[in-house]
Nucleic acid binder design. Structure first.
Length: 446
RNA sequence: GUGUAGGUAGCAUAAUUGGUUAAUGCGUCAUCCUGUGAAGAUGAAAGAUGCGAGUUCGAGUCUCGUCUUACACCCCA
């Protein structure tokens, strides 16, 4: 049989893993510096934990795990007869693969509420799965890097998280645009337009503004049975690019005013330090996940065409789903796979990463091979990533291996070098060689 | 979930209007030459053309289904 892997999944070569680790390490370092601690949760969650948290579309994209054993006996016969897949699922599947890291985290917090002290700051770097059709920057399995803090509603954390975004992307060299909005402002728009009951429809439509333009949004809104007069009001509000003029428009919307207040509080913290990347208020930013209630964030890479590379926001009652009320949380997520793709396209990965091989020793004959092994031990003891070709094979073969491994330096050892008690160190890029002692090699490569 | 375009040796391409043993380059392996890779010479291995069915005397080439890849829509990291 021909080997294959499921749709939307990928293997990672050593080089790709090395690059990905570079991203993870950078992100992790920042997370830790800001006082966050790591946790992990299982790949599988109870299906009931996951369903209903991501909206209708989200439920469709959940991977369900088929029950083991004689699941057919327990299957909902009526649902089968009716050809109703959605109704059949609970009777044949009790587990699913996690769709994101936020919902499992909320579950974690509730289960461990007595062991953790609030505010609880955690980070989590693990793969998630979505049964979406693959596309550019879209996979069925991909890593997310989440930072969240629960147990405080201080807007200080919103500011902190945007600073984390800023610092990570500045360190990686990715030119990012960080968009900020507040769910309450969107609610304010709906309220001011008198269509609070069609809030979700409205947000989905205006989220596409930069893609389909204002006329497209008007059409979309009309298609969702929203009145012409309401659409006019919405259009007027969408034209706003700063908070000040919104206050008047939201005069009759307490929720909208609260949203403005929150964003002002966010800025009172955030503006104390100048960010490297662009941070902008974008009233059209909506975000699909239904659990957000306050500030929302989204990050786009500026120099390349790609979906968002990060997103997040505040959720006031996610733990309420699991029986723990009044615990507010806020967090953001980094899409590692997309950041990888962006950095690859822009060639932002450093050539030399800490985990690559620095030196390969090659020997001409058996005695030299033993001598080389001794050198190898010394070089490794000094903390240099080094290797020795396993046999004194033909020089061409050994050099080719060095080339394929992209080793920057090769130490050639034959009888001449042994007599001198040295090695011939060759720079593979320039081709230059020099006769050095092992100690000198260590000094030069360290 | 909808649509469009593709799937030919490890990789990249080729194969008149359907017509013999499916070609070429790179890579791989071997031998030769070299105290040194990205160089040269010679030779070799490797594919019933994603999978399945159909039309036909005959299918890589036409039709259908299926899987998969890329891109767009939906939605999203």
């Amino acid at each position: 049989m021909k080997p294959s892997i499921p749709k939307g999944t990928r293997d990672f070569t050593p080089e790709q893993v090395s690059k990905r680790n570079y991203i993870f390490d950078t992100i992790k370092k920042v997370f830790i510096k800001y006082g966050y601690q790591p946790i992990e949760t299982p790949a599988m969650e109870s299906l009931s934990t996951l369903t209903g948290k991501y909206g209708e579309e989200g439920d469709k994209l959940l991977f369900k795990v088929l029950n083991n054993g004689e699941f057919l006996n327990k299957a909902d016969k009526q649902a089968i007869a009716d050809g109703n897949s959605a109704k059949l699922i609970p009777s044949i599947s009790k587990r699913g693969l996690r769709y994101d890291l936020t919902v499992p985290f909320a579950r974690f917090v509730v289960m461990h509420q007595n062991e953790i002290s609030f505010p609880f700051k955690r980070y989590q770097i693990q793969p998630v799965w979505r049964a979406d059709r693959p596309q550019k920057g879209r996979y069925q399995e991909f890593y997310q890097c989440d930072v969240d803090v629960v147990g405080s509603d201080s807007l200080m954390y919103e500011a902190e998280l945007v600073q984390i975004y800023d610092e990570v992307f500045a360190t990686l060299g990715v030119n990012a645009e960080i968009k900020v909005n507040n769910r309450k402002i969107l609610e304010g728009i709906a309220e001011a337009a008198g269509i609070s009951d069609q809030f979700m429809d409205m947000t989905m439509a205006i989220d596409k503004l930069d893609k389909i333009g204002i006329e497209g949004v008007r059409k979309d809104l009309a298609g969702r049975d929203i009145a012409e007069t309401a659409i006019d009001k919405i259009e007027k509000m969408l034209g706003v690019t700063s908070l000040a003029p919104l206050k008047e428009l939201f005069a009759d919307s307490p929720t909208g005013l609260k949203g403005i207040e929150e964003l002002e509080a966010f800025h009172s913290y955030f503006d104390l330090k100048t960010p490297t990347n662009e941070v902008v208020f974008d009233i059209t930013l909506a975000r699909g996940l239904s659990y957000y209630t306050g500030c929302i964030f989204e990050v786009k890479a500026k120099d390349v065409k790609m979906g968002s590379i990060g997103g997040g926001g505040r959720y006031d009652d996610l733990t309420g789903n699991f029986g723990l009320k009044n615990v507010s949380g806020v967090g953001v997520s980094f899409g590692a796979a997309r950041i990888f793709d962006v950095m690859e396209e822009l060639e932002l990965f450093p050539k030399e990463r800490g985990d690559s091989l620095k030196l390969l020793l090659v020997a001409f004959d058996d005695p030299a091979h033993k001598y080389a092994f001794d050198c190898l031990n010394k070089v490794r003891a000094a903390g240099i990533n080094a290797d020795l070709y396993p046999s004194p094979a033909k020089m061409k073969k050994q050099m080719k291996y060095a080339n394929d491994r992209k080793v920057p330096f090769v130490a050639v050892i034959g009888s001449n070098e042994m007599e001198a008690g040295k090695v011939q160190l060759k720079n593979m890029e320039t081709g230059e060689q020099s006769l050095l002692t092992t100690e000198e090699v260590i000094e030069q490569l360290f």
